[in-house]
Write a protein that binds this DNA or RNA. Sequence first.
DNA 1: CCTTGAACCTCACGCGACGTGAGGTTGTAC
DNA 2: GTACAACCTCACGTCGCGTGAGGTTCAAGG
Lengths: 245, 245
Amino acid sequence: MQHTELKVGELARRTGLSIRALHHYDEIGLLKPSAHTASGHRLYTAADIARLSHILSLKQLGFSLEEISETLGRADFSALRVVELRLQRAREQLAEQRQLCDRLDSLARQLRAAEPVSADDFLQTIEAMTMFEKYYTPEQLKELEARRQAMGDENIKQVEAEWPRLIASMREQMEQGADPASEPVRALATRWRELVRAFTGGNPGIEKSLQTLHQQEPQVAQRQGRDPKLMEYVGRAMACLDAPK
Amino acid sequence: MQHTELKVGELARRTGLSIRALHHYDEIGLLKPSAHTASGHRLYTAADIARLSHILSLKQLGFSLEEISETLGRADFSALRVVELRLQRAREQLAEQRQLCDRLDSLARQLRAAEPVSADDFLQTIEAMTMFEKYYTPEQLKELEARRQAMGDENIKQVEAEWPRLIASMREQMEQGADPASEPVRALATRWRELVRAFTGGNPGIEKSLQTLHQQEPQVAQRQGRDPKLMEYVGRAMACLDAPK
DNA sequence: CCTTGAACCTCACGCGACGTGAGGTTGTAC
DNA sequence: GTACAACCTCACGTCGCGTGAGGTTCAAGG
């Protein structure tokens, strides 16, 4: 007698599947053992095992159990078409995974660069990223990323530390009613413009996207202390810079 | 009065979430609206909306709803650690996705190259791929792929068509009891070795892996008609080739 | 005041691929 | 006879909602 028929435990051990999984395949009709002992124990024949190996192959390719059932059921299926469809799905998922990794990686670097990571900072950073992805094109994001790399973490930290001071100074001038054309304000406005340029790199597309972002989402600027009134004051100061003394 | 409180429908419309999703967040305690009308309608305050925006941000990063709950619950969490853990998971998933895409792509190319795609051919191809991935290292697989590219689809088709003929001829000799050292067998054995060389490229690592595969999985060779007896005969013929006439 | 239709409410089942018990039977070795 | 492993069949839990069913409330028009 051939001792070829296997019981579930044996088959599970050999395939690495769980017994429950094999039971499940039986339940849904994907792999019903061809034989049973008198007492109801499952007996898998060589043919069953062959079918299982097919099932595992298709599973590896990411097909659902239902798809596998259908595929194995019909003999007339177009293998190429099936695989190409699956490939398309896999490519889409791959792109999403890549995006997710990029986002996380970028976030992690930001967090490493800026030490003080309160819960609020964290969430703000994420939201800033979301905004970025919403308002900048992928090419623009690449350019921004490249510029960040070129600047290095320390420079970025310095600039990020400088912004609040600059904003505070500017606000002080405004609240004291200083003339936007006055010398101290001109100096601050010049530095302001430099910092913005350092960010945009002078790329007009990025400048435009930045403008759109500020128009559509005023709360972003506001959270940094740049409320509409201040921004208007800065705008006037900028205009004075361009105009001759 | 501020009209700031939103009902579910409004909030759903603005966030792009479904009403059911918001109900779900309420059910699991992730986002419970701070207020209700006398009749029980949900009213989301500005604070609720802020929390929701945090939730959506973390969701974008691939956190589960439970993880989001925990993260938002504690104020002392280490943002960097959380993100790095998530990044690690994402990277692993990315690698898997990439592998899956490679497999599917390779399979699709094989199918496009070899026209006759019966269900059986298809499954055999998949299983061959599975075996390959099991017995060859990634570097070896790259080399094999490169060699395939270099050969071109037509050459591969020719070789794949030649193998069954070669195997059949060899079997004929064996069954007729021909001496492994005889001239016709020498010719067949020479061609056999050439075809194997075309595959392995003479790379000893690949030759070794191929041997291991044949030892561990005799049914692979058997399916192509190369049963142990035949293989032994071939082995003797090879030995005669190396030995002087 | 009444009606209509949109928007809201609360159950409660469904998916996909099993994991994880609970509680009982069978097979095998001593 | 008695352990103990391996098997059996329910049946609920997972995760993030979708999708009804069946009922109430709201806002506007007649």
